[in-house]
Each structure stands twice: as structure tokens, then as C-alpha cells.
Design a protein around this nucleic acid. Structure first.
Lengths: 166, 166
DNA sequence: ACCAAATAGAACCGTTTTGGGCCTAATTAA
DNA sequence: TTAATTAGGCCCAAAACGGTTCTATTTGGT
């Protein structure tokens, strides 16, 4: 449910990689090597991120990209927004003409609310949190998720997922 | 960001329409007329919802579909799951091989956590809430969203329950 | 001044997904 | 038996997506 484009996913990976050296200038080749992405793809992602003003580009030889703000000041929502544009969860929410019935309209307004909810959640996750493997990542307490909270308390959740699958 | 398929959207509209007469048997033609969807499309959506055991189908003449449970017992997460299958937010999260770097893995685990977050949120929204236009919709308090909470306090919308846990 | 290293931007193409419709069974009330 | 109705596939056009390539522009270094 609720798919995210692969490019946006790459975006988070690239940003996370750059956030590990926040004051360094990273060239596209540099990033490609660090992330394992192909050079053209990494380049495309970096361009999009720069267009979204999450990165500042430095042209010419010895050029590259650097973070526009500190990792703490960049949210995942911003990264996704830069890669995918401000599209909402629902298509119908923005394009009227289908749900002309009262029921439909009710559904639409409710979807908009849900949309805000999700966006809000993603806005609270910073790049900084994405770089730190596990501990304390998300303010999980904001959601009623006893199961997740339980998992967080288990020791050793931090090990590299050797073939982990949700 | 985070697109949902149009079919899944239709799913919520159809379910909401049916929830307005929870004990009635709705034929595909019936639903199509109520929602404004074309008959084949409505039929397809209904089939998917039935396969997901959110609806019970009654075959033969005078047949149709009815809700498998009360609107209060059906969540939006279930509707989306029935329409789209249990796909996660990220593609890369499930398919390893790309993020072989440490950074990538960290990103992946964090994404899984975000995924759970979103799903949890959608699980708390019931069909019943979707049919009622605005009031009391979502348990907004589960998220730290001052802006949204503020909006809720505006006249016309009811405020979050005082006893709600943080 | 020139060259090499970089990014900017657009265009391109093959693949996949999606939406929507259709057709043929199977089922059942009247 | 007949008409209404769902089950389940199949199919096709259109759109989206991922990834590559090409050209122009900028700029540090020699």
C-alpha cells in the first residue's frame, strides 16, 4: 500500500550518505560510489535534490553538491517532496468530478485529513535520524504502537539486516 | 508524495457508499450508480474487496455484496490492503542488493519503521469515520501535530478527547 | 589561454504498471 | 427454464517510471 517511487527512495539514500559528511563537497561520482548507484542515476537524483533546494550545487572542476542545511534541519518529507513533487496520497482528492455524491465528498475530505497526517509524520523525521542506525530514530511515542515500542527495547536490534524481510 | 492507486481510492469510495446502508445487499449496478463509477469498474473493485474478505458476496439472482463486518470494524488500512496488496512504502526496503553500504542499511531499517508508522495510522481510521463527513474523524492526538490540532479547535470541528494519551 | 572536471537540462527509449472494458463460466431466485 | 448476478480471467491502450545519453555551461588548474 502507498507506494513511493524508487527515485525518491534513492533520494533518501543519497541524502543519508551525504549527511555522514555534512560539510564535504560530494561529486556525483563520489556519491555514486558510496551508494552503489550507477553514475547517471546518482546524477539525476542529485539534480532533483538540488532543484528542490535541499542541496547546493557547485559547478565547474572540483565542484559537486553539499547540503543546503544541517541534517537535523532536513526532513524526509522534504526529500520525498523534492523527488516526487507535492502529490497527495489520493488522486481523486485533487481531481473532482468523480465523487459527486455526498458520500464521495465525505470520503474526500477525510482523505485530505489522512494526507495531512502522513505528511506531518514524515515531516518529523530528520535526515540526522536516518543516518543514525536505530537508536531513538523516530519519536515513536507519537503513535500508539506498543509492538514497535517493544521491539525498540529489545537489545541488539541494531545488527545489520542479513536478509531482513518485513 | 506517496501515491495511492486510483483503484484503491475507488475502494474507499465504494466501501463508504455501502456503509451508509450496512445491512443492505448492494449489487454491482447499484453501487455503480451510487458512486458514479462505470459498471465494469465498480464490479472489479467489488470483486477485489470480496477477495480481501471485506465484503461477502451473494451469487445468483437478487445477489450482490454486503459488508463482512460493521463499518466500525473495518479500517482504511484493510481497504487499501485488499485493493493493493501488502506492498510497503519503499521498494528498496524489500529488494536487497542495492543498499549494500552501511548507510543504505540504516536507511532501510528506518524506512521500515516509517512504514509501520503509516500503517498504524491508517489502521486507526474506520469506515464509520469515513462516512461521517467531518466530526471526530481521526484520532489526531496520536500524532504531534500542533498545526492540525490547532485547526481542530476552530469552531465547527470537535476537539480531541482530553484523556487521550500522548 | 587552454584543458579537464563537473553540473544543468533536456530528450530519449524500453519496460512496467495501471485503468478500464469484455467475455465466458458458475450460481441461484423466481 | 430463465433471467439476474457474481467469479475469474484476459486484453489493450495509455501513462508512468527507470535509466541512459547528449549537449551546453561553468570553473579550477596548468
Amino acid at each position: 500500500m502507498l507506494r513511493m517511487s524508487k527515485l525518491a527512495d534513492y533520494g533518501t539514500v543519497v541524502m543519508a550518505a551525504m549527511a555522514r559528511a555534512p560539510d564535504h563537497i560530494h561529486s556525483a561520482a563520489n556519491v555514486a560510489e558510496q551508494t552503489g548507484l550507477a553514475l547517471p542515476t546518482a546524477s539525476k537524483v542529485l539534480k532533483a535534490l538540488a532543484r528542490g533546494s535541499l542541496l547546493v550545487s557547485v559547478r565547474g572542476a572540483k565542484g559537486g553538491y553539499l547540503l543546503a542545511r544541517t541534517p537535523r534541519e532536513i526532513s524526509i518529507a522534504q526529500v520525498i517532496g523534492a523527488m516526487e513533487g507535492p502529490i497527495g496520497v489520493t488522486e481523486c482528492s485533487s481531481v473532482p468530478g468523480l465523487c459527486l455524491q455526498e458520500a464521495g465528498c465525505a470520503v474526500r475530505t477525510n482523505w485530505q485529513r489522512i494526507n495531512h497526517m502522513v505528511i506531518r509524520a514524515l515531516e518529523q523525521i530528520t535526515l540526522e535520524q536516518m543516518t543514525q542506525p536505530i537508536r531513538k530514530t523516530v519519536e515513536i511515542s507519537m503513535i500508539k504502537a506498543p509492538a514497535i515500542r517493544k521491539r525498540l527495547q529489545q537489545p541488539g536490534v541494531n545488527r545489520p539486516p542479513a536478509g531482513a524481510q518485513p
